[in-house]
Amino acid sequence: MDLMTILSTVVSTTLIYSAPLIFTSIGGSFSEHSGIVNVGLEGIMVIGAFSSIVFSLFMSKTFGWITPWIGLFVGGIIGTLFSLIHAVATINWRTDHIISGTVLNLMAPALGIYLTKLIFDGKGQTGFISQPLASSKIPFLSKIPIIGKIFFENTSIVAYIGILVSIFSWWLLKYTRFGLRLRSVGEHPEAADSVGISVYFYRYCGVLISGFLGGIGGAIMAESITLNFSGTTIAGQGFMSLAAMIFGKWNPIGAMGAAVFFGFAQSLAIIGKYIPIIAKIPNYWFTIAPYLITIIVLVAFVGKSQAPAADGSTFVKSK
């Protein structure tokens, strides 16, 4: 392979593998900014993947090429509904956030495979979708010399959308009333309550947004990478998104950057053997790399103080 091909392959696989993480990790930062720790992102992704695949399998005849895009939306909506469990448990029922998140992670694959078996005559995995979220070129931008070929030809549009979503989310959190209030309930819920802000409402918003984006993330995984649903469709991507969010210091843009970095590590595991310098490194190092790097980064760069001050606690309004 020539340099150009290698570069454009690295970029496109990086983007393809980072897209699910980008959306999910941004979702995580909304939840945590509102004060709710969400280790259930993995489960949310599972549900998103499941629902979007089922939608695609049944509706691709009706909707044609647009099916996977609607599928992402369906994954998001079902993810939102699923995250409602976490919201009710942590916000109203005072459940420990980690326990509740773990329940999502236990429930999602069980429910996903149960329903798969129910719908597909006892089979533990679905068939493959006919209309995947394929790579394509971005008009105009792909015409730019060199850069266009590397970045915008045969690439993952949804990853670019994710990058835009991360910038929008950062702006939303920083410059709007909604963002200010959402952050205030995660930092000091009593203060927010004392100026008449509904802590419960904004915490629900945070969790449900994470459900929506996490569901989309899971759907992207299924619609563009695995192309079906089974028990191993989502294998740690939710946790990796959580790590990306922390790596990115709870900032949506930072989370996106970390997600792209993890996607890069994953892409090396796939195309590493074509790149002369690293071809000799055994594959499993690339598989392990994101997890190892997360630990190192956590230890070396991220202090405890970065998380929102009231993250992980339950607010109880006095009556």
């Binding site: 005072r94 509740s100 429930m107």
Partner: peptide, 21 residues
């Protein structure tokens, strides 16, 4: 499907976690 058992287990833990309610 035997996964119903895992659904039951997840629900049990959900209620254990929500012991306050």
């Amino acid at each position: 499907p035997s996964e119903i058992v895992n659904i039951v287990i997840a629900s049990v833990i959900f209620f254990v976690g929500a012991n306050y309610i």
